[in-house]
Amino acid sequence: MSSPAEYYNSLPPISKAYGTLCLLTTILVRVQILKLNFLYLYYPFVFKNFEIWRLFTSLIFLGPFSINFGIRLLMIARYGVMLEKGAFEKRTADFLWMMIFGATSLLVLSAIPMFNTYLLGIPMVNMLLYVWSRENPNAQISIYGLVQLRSFYLPWAMLALDVIFGSSLLPGLEGIMVGHLYYFLAVLHPLATGKNYMKTPKWVHKIVARFKIGMQANSPVRPPANNNTGTGPFRGRSYRLNQD
C-alpha cells in the first residue's frame, strides 16, 4: 500500500492543485490567519474597492472543517481525479480550460441577483461531479453503503442530500447548470453539428507547456526546448473535445 505522500504525488496536477488550495484555505481560516469576510465574493467590494482577489478566493473555499467539507474534498480527490485521469487523460490543458470556463461561468452567474452566491467552492465541485457523471453515466455508485444508483444520477442525489441535511439548494444547482453548459458546448454540440466552440485556447496550452504541467497530447504549441533531450511529452494523436 502506498504512503500518503506517494498517493499525493500520484494525483494528476490540476485536481491536486485545486484540492490542495481548498484544504489550505480552510486550514488558514481555521487558525484565523485568514478571515471569512476576506474570501467571499461581493461585487461592490470587487469593483468599488478593487478587491480583485475575491474573484479567486471565493472559488477555493469549501467551508469550515465539517462533514460537508470532508465530503466535498473527497469528491475532488475521487471524481475530479478520475475525470482528469480518465476522459482527460493526457489532456491537461483541456482539463485546465474546463476549470477556467467553469470558474468564469460561476462568477458571471453569481452576478445575477437571483443566482447570487458568495462562496463558489461547492458549485465548482458540483460542476466536476456533473461532468464526470456524464462521461461515466453507467458506473454503479453506492451512497453511504445504503443506496446503489447509476452515476448519471449522482449529482442530483447529492443535491437532494444537501437539502435533506439543511444546506442551500442554490450552490449545488449552479454547479450542475455550469457543468451541463460545459458538457453541451464541449461534447454534445460538436457531436451533433461538428462545430466545437469550446476548443482550448492557445494561451492555456502555452501555460501547460511553459510550466510543464502534466501532458497535452494534442497541443498546438511545443514546450520550451530541453537541452538534455530532443523530445518532449506534448505530442500524440488528437482527442475529442479539442478537435478542429
Results as ranks from 00 to 15, higher is better:
residue 114 M to W: 11
residue 242 N to Y: 13
residue 132 W to P: 01
residue 38 F to R: 00
residue 34 L to F: 12
residue 158 M to G: 00
residue 201 P to N: 11
residue 46 V to I: 14
residue 13 P to I: 02
residue 24 L to M: 06
residue 67 I to N: 15
residue 27 I to Q: 08
residue 120 L to P: 07
residue 6 E to S: 13
residue 125 V to F: 03
residue 20 T to V: 01
residue 71 I to R: 13
residue 180 H to M: 01
residue 44 P to R: 13
residue 126 N to C: 01
residue 184 F to H: 06
residue 196 N to P: 14
residue 114 M to P: 09
residue 194 G to P: 07
residue 45 F to V: 01
residue 157 A to G: 08
residue 160 A to L: 10
residue 85 K to T: 05
residue 217 A to N: 06
residue 219 S to T: 07
residue 85 K to S: 06
residue 240 R to Y: 05
residue 47 F to W: 15
residue 204 V to P: 11
residue 228 N to F: 11
residue 126 N to W: 05
residue 162 D to P: 05
residue 88 F to Y: 15
residue 54 R to Q: 09
residue 78 R to M: 05
residue 222 R to V: 05
residue 67 I to K: 14
residue 189 H to G: 01
residue 112 I to S: 10
residue 36 L to M: 09
residue 183 Y to Q: 03
residue 55 L to F: 11
residue 79 Y to Q: 03
residue 198 M to P: 13
residue 213 I to Y: 15
residue 124 M to Y: 06
residue 225 A to S: 14
residue 151 S to Q: 10
residue 103 A to C: 13
residue 27 I to E: 08
residue 109 L to F: 13
residue 167 S to E: 12
residue 73 L to P: 09
residue 46 V to M: 07
residue 71 I to C: 11
residue 156 W to T: 07
residue 46 V to K: 06
residue 67 I to V: 13
residue 73 L to N: 09
residue 48 K to G: 15
residue 114 M to C: 09
residue 78 R to P: 01
residue 222 R to Y: 03
residue 158 M to F: 03
residue 61 F to C: 15
residue 52 I to G: 02
residue 105 S to E: 09
residue 237 R to M: 12
residue 224 P to E: 03
residue 163 V to N: 04
residue 57 T to G: 06
residue 50 F to C: 15
residue 49 N to I: 08
residue 200 T to R: 12
residue 126 N to G: 02
residue 87 A to G: 08
residue 132 W to K: 01
residue 174 E to R: 00
residue 32 Q to R: 15
residue 234 F to W: 11
residue 115 F to M: 14
residue 138 N to E: 13
residue 106 L to S: 14
residue 7 Y to P: 02
residue 156 W to Y: 15
residue 101 F to I: 10
residue 220 P to F: 11
residue 174 E to F: 00
residue 118 Y to T: 04
residue 35 K to M: 05
residue 153 Y to E: 03
residue 167 S to R: 12
residue 87 A to Y: 07
residue 228 N to L: 11
residue 24 L to T: 04
residue 2 S to C: 08
residue 38 F to A: 00
residue 61 F to A: 14
residue 91 R to D: 04
residue 113 P to T: 12
residue 24 L to A: 07
residue 218 N to E: 14
residue 44 P to T: 10
residue 17 A to H: 12
residue 179 G to P: 01
residue 81 V to S: 02
residue 184 F to K: 01
residue 49 N to L: 14
residue 158 M to H: 00
residue 107 L to E: 14
residue 68 N to I: 04
residue 95 F to W: 08
residue 146 L to H: 05
residue 14 I to P: 03
residue 56 F to V: 14
residue 208 V to L: 09
residue 197 Y to W: 15
residue 240 R to A: 00
residue 59 L to N: 14
residue 13 P to V: 02
residue 54 R to L: 07
residue 28 L to F: 15
residue 212 K to F: 04
residue 32 Q to S: 15
residue 227 N to E: 12
residue 172 G to R: 06
residue 8 Y to M: 04
residue 17 A to Y: 13
residue 163 V to Y: 09
residue 220 P to S: 11
residue 19 G to E: 05
residue 243 Q to D: 03
residue 48 K to H: 15
residue 118 Y to N: 08
residue 110 S to R: 13
residue 199 K to R: 13
residue 32 Q to E: 15
residue 117 T to R: 05
residue 211 F to C: 05
residue 112 I to W: 13
residue 51 E to S: 10
residue 139 A to P: 02
residue 19 G to R: 10
residue 126 N to L: 04
residue 239 Y to R: 08
residue 237 R to I: 11
residue 71 I to W: 11
residue 84 E to P: 10
residue 39 L to C: 03
